[in-house]
């Protein structure tokens, strides 16, 4: 890092708040932590004595597990609170919950919430550092960072690349974090999906909106697909997953339009045969499992960096 740089963020609420330098610093920190996960004894004492609370208001297996593994590899004490065990069902508000948890003096709170902006609200009501593990359709910064780490590992750079994101852009917090992150690092992000799933004004986040799958995928360095849901809260978004797969799914043939060594990515869980043909999802260009591995490293880096700032 350039001299004089230091990581100044108390909370990680979104990629939007992170500068180019911040992102590069997080990625290089994560890269250095990858080695820990490869050791026979995968544990360092860095966060010993620190209390980390996983406050998950939305069901999540992957992200919560990834954060928990990251915390334990750094010797932190972790506690999980999910909606069934939390008090929110008794009418306690998020602000109340926040103040209660804060009274137990945790060092870091990791929050997943269905409402966009909930991590910000939490951060205003607690002393602890807050890490957003996904809020509504807003941001999922650790996912955006692990996506960038994965691409950087395979491509050696994050600048000058063509990143195609295909699928449900409208309801995806991953899409927003990726669009902001990759464009900030100097790549171009092309988005494509059925018009029912491409939100108004997404171009103002820096994405280029495509009018065909071919336009999005041709010569891409990365083909990222997003999980599809046919209907949300009575909003008829798609007639069928079958039709989606045919017109918007990534087949071998579509993938052949991208660069020969293009990476295939997906934040998971994949609807096999919908967003991705199975032979693409499991094919040689798929780096979906690298994403999972890198998720732990990126989350270790985030825990380490926000603690360095307390």
């Amino acid at each position: 890092m350039a001299t004089g740089y230091y990581f100044a963020h108390r909370h990680i609420l979104g990629i939007e708040q992170l500068s180019c330098e911040d992102i590069a610093h997080i990625l290089s920190t994560a890269d250095s932590f990858k080695e820990i996960s490869a050791r026979p004894i995968k544990k360092v004492p860095t966060l010993r004595g620190h209390t980390i609370i996983n406050l998950f208001f939305e069901p999540s297996t992957r992200t919560r597990l990834s954060f928990e593994v990251a915390a334990k590899r750094m010797s932190a004490d972790t506690f999980n609170i999910s909606p069934s065990t939390s008090s929110t069902t008794k009418g306690e508000t998020l602000a109340d919950t926040a103040r209660n948890i804060s009274a137990m003096h945790p060092d870091i709170i990791i929050i997943r919430h269905a409402c966009s902006g909930a991590p910000l609200l939490l951060s205003r009501n607690v002393q602890a550092a807050v890490i957003n593990a996904g809020d509504g359709a807003h941001e999922h910064p650790s996912q955006g960072l692990l996506d960038m780490l994965t691409v950087k590992e395979h491509r050696g750079t994050l600048s000058g690349l063509k990143i195609a994101i295909v699928g449900d852009i409208a309801h995806s917090r991953v899409a927003r974090s990726d669009i902001v992150g990759f464009t900030r690092m100097g790549s171009e992000v092309y988005v494509y999906g059925p018009s029912t799933l491409v939100p108004k004004g997404i171009d103002q986040l820096g994405a280029k909106v495509c009018t065909s799958l071919e336009e999005a995928v041709t010569d891409a360095d990365v083909v990222m697909t997003l999980r599809i849901q046919r209907e949300r809260q009575n909003d008829p978004l798609l007639p069928s997953l079958r039709e989606y797969a045919r017109h918007f799914g990534i087949s071998r043939q579509v993938l052949s339009l991208a660069k020969p060594d293009a990476l295939v990515m997906h934040p998971g869980p994949v609807n096999r045969g919908v967003e991705l043909n199975p032979d693409v999802a499991d094919g040689p260009q798929s780096v979906i499992l690298d994403q999972v591995t890198n998720g732990v490293a990126v989350r270790m880096a985030l825990l380490y960096l926000v603690m360095g700032n307390s």
Binding site: S116, H138, K200, G201, L205
Partner: peptide
């Protein structure tokens, strides 16, 4: 009108339903 704010670039950026 099932959203919570005006639908446009700002709602898209904030991830709020428009």
């Amino acid at each position: 009108s099932t959203g919570v704010m005006n639908e446009g670039p700002v709602s898209t950026r904030l991830g709020l339903k428009g």
